[in-house]
Structure formats: structure tokens, C-alpha cells
């Protein structure tokens, strides 16, 4: 059972990593246009530079 001392912190850490990643996506406005993002991946145009709007925000 001593293995728990290692495994529980690891699982909590990994879960926490996911939580932090989620918070980051939330803060960087990645849920503002889910339908558009789903469609944009099919676009043949490539972004060579970040969109101007994002820079200004």
C-alpha cells in the first residue's frame, strides 16, 4: 500500500494539470465561437500571422 504515497500525488498532479489547461483555454477566449472554429479547420487559407483583432485585444 506504500505505493499510494507516490501514485495519489501523481494522479492529483496530472488532474491539476488538466484543470490548469482548461483555465487557460477559458481565459484565452477559446469558447467564443465553437461552430466557427469547427468550420475553420477545413479552410484552405493559412494564417501566417496572428489575426489583427487578437493583437489589439
Amino acid at each position: 500500500m506504500n505505493i499510494l504515497v507516490v501514485l495519489i500525488p501523481i494522479s492529483l498532479f496530472l488532474g491539476g494539470l488538466g484543470l490548469v489547461a482548461f483555465m487557460w483555454t477559458l481565459r484565452s477566449s477559446q469558447y467564443d465561437d465553437p461552430e466557427g472554429d469547427a468550420a475553420r479547420i477545413l479552410s484552405g487559407r493559412y494564417d501566417d500571422e496572428p489575426a489583427a483583432e487578437k493583437v489589439k485585444r
Binding site: D32, D33, E35, G36, A51, A52, E53, K56
Partner: peptide
Amino acid sequence: AAARVNLTLKRVSVT
């Protein structure tokens, strides 16, 4: 300068 469509809201925001 820039145009960005938001498909969810069916709007485009143009600078």
C-alpha cells in the same frame, strides 16, 4: 484592416 467571422453568433466584426 481585419475581418473576423463568428459563426456561432452569425456575425462578422470588421476593423
